[in-house]
Amino acid sequence: MAEYYDPQTYPKEWNYLQTGTIIDQYVVERELAHGGFSSVYLARQIADQVQVAIKEYLPRKFAHRTWNNMVVANNEEAAVLFKRGRVLFFEEAKVLSKLKHPNIVEVIGFFKANSTVYMVMTYDYGVTLDKLLKNRTVSVSEDFLLTLFNSLLAGLGHIHSQQFIHLDIKPSNILVRPGNDALLLDFGAIQSFPKSHLGKQSKVLTKGYSPVEQHNLSAQLGPWTDIYAVGASMRNCLENKTPVPALDRARQDTLVPAVKAFKRKFPEHLLKAIDWAMELQPENRPQSVAELQQALAGG
């Protein structure tokens, strides 16, 4: 029960669903990834043995799992936040189930169980970009960058055409599949646009990838917001480190332009496109995916 919850004595194995756990029509095989608000598992459909990925809503700040896999709030105050987040998670699943594109993770179902909610996605083979860069298992060439990010932009363009923005693009949310084909993951921060006032996007911020306007509740967000994060992810590929955070750049911009820092290592038009995408002020960036694609093509 929530009133007996003590983080110090809480069994660590209860943080995750254990191998062999049956949930709805699936059996859990292993954990694939986890974040502050959810965990993702590799699972198998019992009926036909098809592998899927299942995302479970479990925000560790607000809730925990009990011995019988029920997810309960840590206290009464946390219960309000937990329930609000659960509604948003279900909304994310519903939006994603309609956003069908080869470069966007595909949601094939969602269900409620254990007092929380689950999202069922197709399981794709690949490695996230952050892991590839960290382990230096990929050679970052012009061909690699263009193949990967043009496929990512194809998916992102589809999201924008449906009047949504992702708001959490970063290397750990880009799955690199065979042939350097990108799959965009984690739509927990997705917002519709345009809208008059903005709320929960301020809660999902990643240093180095979130532009200045994403830190400002009254700012207008749009495709240009995602474009900054794409540029920052490309910049990370060039130097294998997280770019200088946007708010630090706003105070004093110490980021050496890519066109200077990587001169003669990559074509000038490619470096200029990255710098353009990473312009501090939203109005100075490409305003659409199509504009960035054209710049990457040297147009």
Rank of each mutant, 00 (worst) to 15 (best):
L238C: 02
G36Y: 03
L198W: 09
V50L: 12
A53P: 04
I46R: 11
L221Q: 04
R264W: 01
N240C: 10
K207W: 14
P243E: 05
K263E: 01
A79P: 13
L129N: 04
Q51T: 11
H215V: 05
S139K: 14
L271Y: 00
A290N: 11
L217I: 13
T66Q: 08
G85V: 08
A79R: 15
N135E: 10
A182V: 09
V117K: 04
V52S: 09
N75I: 06
F193M: 08
Q25S: 13
R136C: 14
V127M: 14
V259E: 07
F89S: 01
P223E: 13
L132Y: 07
R30Q: 11
A182G: 08
L129G: 06
F144E: 05
R177M: 15
C237P: 04
M119T: 12
I165V: 15
S141R: 15
F90P: 00
E291H: 08
G231T: 04
G188H: 06
V244Y: 11
I46A: 06
G222N: 09
L270T: 00
Q163E: 15
F164T: 04
H34G: 07
S139N: 15
A182I: 09
N135W: 12
Y118M: 01
F110G: 05
A297M: 12
A189M: 07
N216V: 15
I190A: 07
D275G: 00
A113T: 01
L81Q: 05
H215T: 05
S97R: 11
E31S: 07
I174V: 12
Y16P: 07
N74F: 09
V138Y: 10
L99K: 03
M278P: 05
V50F: 15
K94R: 11
R251P: 02
Y209W: 10
V50A: 14
L88R: 09
T9L: 11
K94I: 15
Q18T: 08
N69G: 10
Q45E: 14
K112Q: 15
G85Y: 03
T225A: 08
E92W: 12
L292H: 01
